[in-house]
Structure formats: structure tokens, C-alpha cells
């Protein structure tokens, strides 16, 4: 398994949250561990810009050949953009989950929610247990 990037934050549902480069905006995707468990990703269903989600609300689904999983928004906010290249090339989630395989860009409404997320270290021990 490739490393778990430092500086990102994680959830128990194997999503990550990373700063998007603009104030209050974050990129969300699934971790390398999660893509490995799913196998070949064949389809990612994403919301539309402008949609708003509560923390832990389902914002989309990800499909592998014989598995499907809901995607949970780790934080509350409004969708600024979605990664449209996943429509054409969903396998980016497998090949580059932390980079080109990001899913949604969200404008955070409650910064305190970030405090509830896991650090890279905490996430690493979580997946060690499973």
C-alpha cells in the first residue's frame, strides 16, 4: 500500500479531505485503501455543483464490478465543482486516488467539523486493525 498522505484528514468511511487551495474549499475522495478493497472502479455517480450536503450525508455512489458503495460527505457544505473526468475515466480513482481521482470540491460551512476528522496517523492505525 502506498503511503497515507500527511496533512490530509480522513474518515472511518475511508474518505479523505484535503485543502483545495482556496479559502474554505476542500477536495474529497476515497483513500487508497478503499479503492484497493473495491477493486476496479467502473462508475462514480456524483452530485451537481450547487447541491448542498450535511455532514455524513450521501453525496454519491461508487461502483466496482461487483460492489457498490455510498459516498459520505465528511463535512457539511456546498458543492463547488465535481471531477467530471471520472465520467470518462473512473479508473483514476484506482490509479491516483489522492490526486486525479478526487471526487468533489466542497465549500465548508462549519470549520469546527474538521476537528472531528482523523489524522493520517489515526487513519493508518484504523486500517491496520481491519
Amino acid at each position: 500500500m502506498s503511503g497515507i498522505p500527511e496533512g490530509f484528514q480522513y474518515t472511518e468511511e475511508h474518505e479523505y479531505v484535503r485543502e483545495a487551495g482556496a479559502e474554505g474549499e476542500f477536495l474529497i475522495g476515497i483513500t487508497d485503501y478503499a479503492q484497493g478493497e473495491l477493486g476496479d472502479v467502473v462508475f462514480v455517480e456524483l452530485p451537481s455543483p450547487g447541491d448542498a450536503f450535511e455532514k455524513m450525508e450521501v453525496f454519491g455512489t461508487i461502483e466496482a464490478v461487483k460492489a457498490v458503495s455510498d459516498l459520505y460527505s465528511p463535512i457539511s457544505g456546498e458543492i463547488v465543482a465535481v471531477n467530471e473526468t471520472l465520467d470518462e475515466d473512473p479508473a483514476l480513482v484506482n490509479s491516483d486516488p489522492y490526486g486525479e481521482g478526487w471526487m468533489i470540491r466542497i465549500r465548508l460551512t462549519d470549520p469546527s467539523e474538521l476537528d472531528d476528522l482523523l489524522t493520517a496517523e489515526a487513519y493508518a492505525s484504523l486500517i491496520d486493525e481491519s
Binding site: 477493486g39 476496479d40 467502473v42 462508475f43 461502483e63 466496482a64 464490478v65 461487483k66 473512473p90 479508473a91
Partner: peptide, 11 residues
């Protein structure tokens, strides 16, 4: 046939 690429079939 040998094992088939089901990922490709779905993508």
C-alpha cells in the same frame, strides 16, 4: 475463453 475483463465490460 480465459478470465474476462469485467471492469472493461462495465467501463
Amino acid at each position: 475463453v480465459s478470465r474476462l475483463d469485467e471492469g472493461r465490460a462495465a467501463r
